[in-house]
Amino acid sequence: MNIFVCVKQVPDTETKVVPSADKTYIETKQVKWVMNPYDEFAVEQALLIKGKDASANITVVRVGSVQASAEALRTAMAMGADDAVLVESPDNLDSFMMAKALKGSIEKAGKSIDLVLCGKQAVDDDCSQVPQILAQMLSLPSVSVVSSFEWQGNDLTLKREIEGGSIEVYSVKTPCVVSVTKGLNQPRYASLPGIMKAKKKPLAQYPLSAVGVSEADRKIKYSNVSLPPDKPKGKKFDAMDEKNIQQVVSEVAQLLRNEAKVI
């Protein structure tokens, strides 16, 4: 079974975002890069499958800028993935370019596709488009935002939570594309021997042009990236002293009704 896991490097969620000077993206010089949190669940799912089927091969694929300090692909290989493909590109590709580049990267590996796993969205541009576009480009079915994954041979049973906590239970056969969300599993930490081994695992690197993607593929133009306007300072009440609580809650309830008009 050939499993491909698409990972992205994104700014850590604790990052304070600053728009870039040309306002088309954010300032990335001071950013701490991490593997997109949702992609960790995708890597772990692939490892769980390999845990039961030792013949499974896991290829991790990443399209993005190259940072010496962090490499999500090495992390994934330290966790247990077998090999990796890195396509060097700017960090502001749109979803169509990203999906096309991932398709090209997967094809570069030269293996038949049984399963493509992705995080449900990257927490940088938050588009949640790439897995579904990639599935269409590969002419494969897809199930997105999966929080439960069971498999028996090439039959998958996948649960996807929708609005209000209802759950769609999908039945699908491999090959397919699955995007996953938090709650699916508990990603493992890379072990020290794993980290040492990962350094020797194959990592193929290509420029963006080698997977057939150019600026002509760009479908969305971003501009005027800006911070949201600050809210005016609110009212603050001290209710640490129990004697004040009644007075405070009564005042806040009145404000919600008469000033904010939200209840």
């Binding site: 479908k219 133009k221 949201p228």
Partner: peptide
């Protein structure tokens, strides 16, 4: 549209 979960906003237009 918001990016980075709303830490910033961006104007978006279509190309193509």
């Amino acid at each position: 549209r918001p990016m980075f979960a709303g830490k910033c906003l961006s104007q978006v237009e279509f190309l193509g």
